[in-house]
Design a protein around this nucleic acid. Structure first.
Lengths: 229, 229
DNA sequence: CTGGGCTCGATACTTCAATATCGATACTGA
DNA sequence: TCAGTATCGATATTGAAGTATCGAGCCCAG
């Protein structure tokens, strides 16, 4: 049984909550590897992220990596397994559409490579922005996106345009045969079923924050502690 | 029984998933109100957001607003109830810490008022940024934050600094007696229990996107369809 | 005026995530 | 060499979220 078929089998049974926690583990594991640690216990991982040790062990189980009693999990092996599981072992190529402030922030973020993402081009429909240099990328006109995507084997589109332009820009991406869209606009996009859309909605997080502020017995800590909410 | 005690009672039984969906309803409801619609059925709300009608009805139930058979829910009443439930009926005052690209993007975002948020000041530790005008705000030095917060009755801090500066900036916010922190950095903040931290983690969304792209039978649609995942 | 059909609210059911508990394992230190 | 202990994996229990179904209400059409 190859590692690949194993992860394929497990993937179907994977809950989203688990997938969401994997990057956090990965970040910490990389820091530990940089320190030269070879093993780490699920207990330690849990403490850092305010989780229960059992959850961590269950999450890590989907990677197929076995831990050793009293020692913990092999750091490097775990990193490779998580990267492979998420498809982050080779960076996916992405184009950014919408060269506003948010687009600039994402373009300038050093570290997407660690998350399996490489932004290879920036596009905008606004003639005033086209041609400008932005974080090392020259902003190109939206009309040139299809050719760029086809030639560059681009799989992902990052959508950071103003809301009114969102659906049209998404249509361009879809026609360019992009596989997935990371949608930072507030618009629900209409796309064919083969295109995956991941919507990043600030309002959701803000709603949770507001709600927790109103809660009488709101507790602190970081992020949303899954327990006792 | 006042409306307030009612919502207080229900709040304790509210799941987070429900809270996260409320802003989406709110957005659509406002659009409908602008069109002059007085009633809307849960079925319609569900279709727009790719949800099951039952979920919508259950979510709306926590607001205490009753719908009428064959007619649906009263749009305006529902808007007011959701706003009140989330505490968005009066905008919370917030300061932004970190005047980089992401900070600029958030400062420039027209529409936080609709989500119960008003950014009233921008701060940075970098002398080169201090004094600059940014989206109608003058960037102030971090040292002046405590006084600003105390005088301005500021409740929230929005953290958009680079990762290495995150914990220190959070400490400043905590000492200034801020009640909640909207954390856009990748750092797990250490804060006292009375301070609520909401972490906005791009890596989570990216992980979900990557995972769905790898899924053989990945389906499209928008956001993460809760059913059949 | 009266039946049809859409929509609501409530209840019961199913699925999934989080938690608790257990025996098994292998390193530590006497 | 051998008890002690931290950690693992597995199983069972709890709880929350989503799903399915039902009777009841109310508008509309005939």
């Amino acid at each position: 049984m190859t590692n690949d078929t194993l992860s394929m089998e497990r993937m179907q049974r994977t809950g989203l909550s688990c997938v969401r926690r994997l990057p956090a583990y990965l970040q910490l594991l990389r820091a530990l590897r940089a320190e030269g640690r070879e093993f780490v216990s699920g207990t330690v991982l849990a403490r850092v992220h305010y989780l229960e040790p059992v959850i961590v062990r269950k999450d890590l189980a989907i990677t197929g990596v076995m831990g050793k009693p009293r020692l913990g999990f092999p750091v490097n092996e775990l990193i490779l397994a998580i990267e492979k599981f998420l498809g982050w072992d080779r960076a996916a190529r992405a184009v950014l559409v919408g060269a506003g402030n948010l687009g600039a922030a994402l373009l300038g973020y050093q570290g997407f490579e660690d998350f399996g993402l490489r932004i290879v081009g920036a596009f905008d429909a606004d003639p005033r922005k086209i041609g400008r240099e932005m974080k090392g990328h020259r902003v190109l006109p939206l009309q040139r996106l299809p050719g760029f995507v086809a030639r560059g084997k681009v799989e992902l589109g990052i959508l950071t345009v103003p809301a009114p332009a969102a659906q049209a820009a998404a249509a361009v991406l879809v026609r360019a045969r992009i596989r997935g869209i990371w949608n930072f606009t507030s618009v629900r996009l209409q796309v064919p079923p083969e295109v995956v859309v991941q919507k990043e909605d600030l309002a959701e997080g803000l709603a949770v924050l507001s709600h927790r502020l109103r809660q009488p017995g709101a507790q602190g800590g970081d992020s949303v502690p899954p327990r006792q909410v």
